[in-house]
C-alpha cells in the first residue's frame, strides 16, 4: 500500500474506532430524523399538500428530506472532532508526523463521515420501507441516491472542516452549526414543495443545496420512470432537471473546496 493510502487508512481507522466505541453518536444521528419523520408525517397527515407531490403519503414525501438532513447534520458536525484535536494539541501530533500530505487528515475525516452517513441513511431507508415508503428508482436510482448523499456530505463536511480550522474553539463551531442548520432545512423543499412557498422564499429555497439534494432523491424514490433530464424544480430563474440539480451541487462543491483549501491550507502549510 502506498504511503498516501496508508496514512489515510490510519487516520480514518481512528475515527471508525471512535464510532465503534461510542455508538451513541451514530444512534443520536438517527434519532433526530426519525423523530422528524414520525412527528411531521403525523402533523401533516391530512394536509392537502400531499396531492401535489406525487405520493399520497406525507411520510413518503419527507423521507428524502430526512435522508438529506441526516447527511447534512452528520457532515456539518464533521469539523467538531478536528477542532477538539486542535484544542487538545492532538493535531500538532499529526502535523509533526511525516504525512505525505497533511490534507490526508481532511480526506480521512470526510471518508469516515460519508461511510457513517451512508450507514445511517441505509437504516432510514430500511425502516421507512417497513413503514410503507418504497424506493422505486432501480439500480441507477441507487447510484443517484449514493451520488447525492456523497455530494451533500462532501459539501458540508468541507464547510465544517474549513470552519474548524478558521475558528479557535469548538463552541464557536457548535454555535454556527446551530444557527445555520434549521434555517437551511426549512428554507428547502425537504418539508414542503416549492409551489407552497411565498415568492421571496422561493429564491432562497432555489439557492439552497439541500433543495438540490432533496429533489433528485425524491425523483428516484417515487418515479419509477425517472429521467435525468426531466424537470424537477421550477425555480424563479430556470427550470432544473435532476442533472441540473446535481450540476449545481457539483459547482457548489468545487467553490467550497477552493475556499476551504485556502483556509485549511493556511493552517496546514
Amino acid at each position: 500500500m502506498n504511503a498516501y493510502l496508508m496514512e489515510i487508512k490510519a487516520l480514518s481507522w481512528r475515527w471508525f474506532l471512535h464510532s465503534k466505541r461510542r455508538p451513541i453518536v451514530l444512534l443520536a444521528g438517527l434519532f433526530q430524523p426519525f423523530i422528524w419523520l414520525v412527528l411531521f408525517s403525523a402533523v401533516f397527515k391530512n394536509s392537502p399538500m400531499r396531492t401535489l407531490v406525487g405520493t399520497d403519503s406525507y411520510l413518503a414525501f419527507i423521507t428524502p428530506g430526512a435522508l438529506v438532513f441526516t447527511a447534512f447534520t452528520g457532515a456539518l458536525n464533521g469539523g467538531v472532532p478536528i477542532l477538539f484535536d486542535r484544542e487538545l494539541g492532538f493535531l500538532d501530533r499529526l502535523l509533526a508526523a511525516p504525512l505525505k500530505s497533511r490534507f490526508s487528515i481532511i480526506w480521512a475525516t470526510g471518508f469516515h463521515i460519508f461511510v457513517m452517513t451512508l450507514l445511517q441513511c441505509v437504516v432510514i431507508v430500511l425502516v421507512t420501507s417497513v413503514m410503507g415508503v418504497k424506493f422505486n428508482g432501480g439500480l441507477a436510482g441507487i447510484g443517484v441516491f449514493i451520488l447525492v448523499l456523497a455530494l451533500i456530505t462532501m459539501l458540508f463536511t468541507t464547510l465544517s472542516l474549513a470552519l474548524s480550522f478558521a475558528l479557535r474553539y469548538h463552541f464557536e463551531l457548535l454555535s454556527i452549526i446551530m444557527i445555520i442548520s434549521l434555517p437551511l432545512m426549512f428554507m428547502s423543499t425537504a418539508f414542503a414543495p416549492l409551489e407552497y412557498m411565498p415568492g421571496w422564499l422561493t429564491w432562497f429555497v432555489s439557492l439552497n443545496p439541500i433543495t438540490m439534494a432533496v429533489e433528485p432523491l425524491r425523483a428516484v424514490f417515487f418515479d419509477g420512470s425517472w429521467q435525468g433530464s426531466k424537470n424537477l424544480l421550477a425555480t424563479p430563474v430556470a427550470n432544473l432537471s435532476m442533472w441540473g440539480c446535481l450540476a449545481v451541487l457539483v459547482v457548489m462543491n468545487l467553490i467550497m473546496t477552493a475556499l476551504a483549501k485556502v483556509v485549511i491550507g493556511k493552517k496546514l502549510a
Partner: peptide
C-alpha cells in the same frame, strides 16, 4: 501504537 505506525507509514 498501530495508529502511530500508520501515520509514520
Amino acid at each position: 501504537m498501530q495508529f502511530t505506525a500508520g501515520i509514520l507509514h
